[in-house]
Simulated scan of single mutants.
Amino acid sequence: MDTSKELKIRCWIDIDGKKFFGPGRAQLLMMIEKNGSLSKAAKEMRMSYRKAWAMVEDMNQRGQQPYVELHKGGTQGGGAELTETGKKVLATFKKMNDKITETVQQHTDEMLGMI
């Protein structure tokens, strides 16, 4: 009988035992950077605006520096942009995840062959 085997790994950062940053928040930052808007980023991720806003607030409050700067609406509409800290955190997280993925891929066949 053939079985399907898959090696999965996810990396996230905890602060005081509570999830702080991982793939979902990284994706939210990428979408904010792409769209220049929190509401558009949330919509593209099929996430409620309220949840996206709560995630941004959590990152801004618990991180060493804010990750996202939100601009209030008005006649020209609001917007959102990553701060320099947000850009650095996102780039470093992406680089780290790429290296982790590369390492896992190098050992996947061997590992799954033993299971």
Score class of each variant (00 low, 15 high):
W53P: 00
K40E: 14
E33T: 12
Q64T: 11
N60L: 04
A80M: 04
M45Q: 11
R46N: 15
Q61D: 14
R46S: 15
A42S: 12
E69G: 02
Q27I: 03
M114Y: 15
K18R: 15
E33S: 15
F20M: 01
M96D: 05
G113D: 03
A52E: 08
G73H: 06
L112E: 05
L112K: 06
L29F: 11
Q65E: 13
W53F: 12
G24S: 14
G63L: 00
E44Y: 01
A26F: 12
L112Q: 03
K99H: 15
D14P: 03
G63T: 06
T83K: 07
R62Y: 08
L38R: 07
M55R: 14
V56L: 02
E84C: 03
E110V: 05
T3R: 11
Y67K: 06
V56E: 02
L28H: 05
K99L: 13
W12K: 14
D2Q: 13
M31N: 12
Q105G: 07
S39I: 06
K40P: 01
K87L: 07
V104H: 01
A80V: 04
G73I: 00
K94F: 01
M1I: 08
E33H: 14
A42K: 12
K87V: 01
E33P: 04
R10L: 04
E33C: 08
V68W: 09
I32R: 11
D109Q: 07
R10F: 02
R62S: 05
K19P: 10
S4V: 14
V104Q: 08
D14F: 01
F93P: 00
L28G: 01
P66V: 10
D14V: 02
L70V: 09
R62P: 00
D16K: 12
K72I: 01
K88H: 11
W53M: 12
T103N: 12
M30F: 12
L28D: 02
K34Y: 08
L90Q: 13
T85M: 04
K5Y: 13
P66W: 09
F21A: 02
K8P: 00
L7K: 05
Q105S: 11
G79F: 04
M55G: 05
Q27E: 15
L82M: 08
K43L: 07
K19S: 13
L29D: 00
E110Q: 14
K19M: 09
E57L: 10
V56P: 00
P66H: 12
D58H: 11
M96N: 10
M96R: 11
A41C: 04
Q105H: 03
R46I: 08
K87C: 05
E6I: 07
E57S: 13
K99Q: 14
M114F: 13
L29I: 05
E81N: 12
M45Y: 10
L112H: 05
T103K: 14
D16E: 13
V104I: 12
E69H: 05
Q61R: 15
D14T: 01
I32P: 03
E33A: 14
